[in-house]
Design a protein around this nucleic acid. Structure first.
Length: 314
RNA sequence: GGCGUCGUAGCUCAGAUGGUAGAGCAGAGGACUGAAAAUCCUUGUGUCACUGGUUCGAUUCCAGUCGAUGCCA
């Protein structure tokens, strides 16, 4: 029997499985996890919430039993949460898991969250509720112009490069400047943080028609499973950020009689397609991702079993 | 069968008293550092149903054909 000793010269490996929504990450990741007798960390910013089960395509009970999953349903929609917290939570969970496994899997479709785990994000202050309220107020009263005015003062460099039409970006930058007394620009180092594990990123793709079909089928399946009831039960909380989510917001509109049920279902499908598209534009930029067709289990296994990726610098 | 209305971008529709056309949605591309399934940006050439006629010129006017639809029979 060969036991690989847990020493520093054998690097821990984080295998990241990513790709657009509905591409088939869940089942493939479970297969790989079983192959390596390891566990899965989810980087899916909506599967975190315990109240959102059907609409987020959470892995089934059987699937979760087959392989331990982490960060699925561990939060309530009422809990404030963000990437930075996820970075911390995931890192400490990884430390724990790496004491038992050489290889751990991370899967999900939120590129920002994955990057936070793999290379970290800058130290910036968490949002402050009352300040955020104030900025929202400023925006409502004075519009984008008011935000821009303020930013021009507080961080002229960022003012030059921001997307000036994006209120959320502007408000966040202002928030950081005001709470720290420093410019947002100066705090954004954009330097990867060292990690004591290696990362390999696997991207799953499918052609457009195939993905669209899967999205459509999955949406129908969610409806058959009772999405509408799930959404109804969350209706009182529809203004929470967690519920500003594809599959939920459209059905809220239906409950509000703004659109019909079949219109809502169609809208869920097109919004999911658009989400998948946005994910792809994010992932395309990431040169570390090795792409495989989502059905190419053979190819992925071959690559992983060859183990040559373990020798990659990283 | 008669009379009327309509036929313009993938969809819903606007428009030009005749000089080959434009919105919304969809689609496509992009951005992205604590709200990220979020938020935001860019992007519109299409036999203007078909066939003739009038005209320097017709998608626009006229006639016919076909299709849709409404009313009357």
């Amino acid at each position: 029997m060969t036991v690989i000793p847990m020493t520093t010269d054998v690097p821990h490996q984080l295998i990241v499985i990513t790709g657009p929504t509905a591409v088939g990450k869940t089942s493939l990741t479970i297969q790989i996890a079983r192959h390596f007798f390891t566990e899965i960390i989810s980087a899916d910013s909506r599967q975190f919430y315990k109240e959102m089960r059907i609409g987020t395509a959470r892995p089934s009970k059987t699937e979760m039993k087959a392989v331990p999953h982490h960060f699925i349903g561990h939060l309530s929609i009422h809990d404030p949460y963000n990437v930075s917290r996820f970075e911390n939570d995931a890192l400490s969970k990884l430390e724990d898991l790496f004491s038992k496994h050489h290889i751990v899997l991370l899967t999900g479709g939120a590129g920002l969250y994955i990057n936070a785990v793999c290379s970290g994000i800058d130290e910036l202050p968490d949002p402050d509720d009352s300040l955020r309220e104030g900025l929202k107020e400023l925006y409502l009263k004075g519009g984008i112009a008011a935000l821009l005015d303020r930013l021009k003062d507080l961080d002229p460099d960022y003012y030059r490069t921001v997307d000036r039409a994006n209120p959320k970006r502007l408000m966040r930058a202002l928030e950081v400047c005001i709470t720290t007394g420093q410019t947002y620009t100066s705090l954004r180092k954009n330097k990867p943080k060292p990690r004591d594990f290696r990362v390999i990123k696997i991207g799953l793709f499918r052609d457009k028609e195939d993905l669209a079909k899967r999205i459509s089928d999955r949406t129908d399946a969610m409806m058959a499973e009772g999405l509408l009831d799930e959404v109804k039960s969350l209706y009182p909380f529809r203004h929470l950020n967690a519920l500003n989510t594809v599959g939920y917001k459209e059905l809220f509109q239906c409950i509000d009689k703004e659109i019909t049920l079949s219109q809502a279902v169609e809208k869920i499908k097109t919004n999911t397609r658009r989400y998948a598209k946005r994910q792809m534009t994010w992932f395309r930029k990431d040169e570390d991702i090795r792409w495989f067709h989502a059905d190419d289990v053979e190819g992925i296994s071959r690559m992983l079993d060859a183990g040559c990726w373990m020798l990659d610098a990283g």
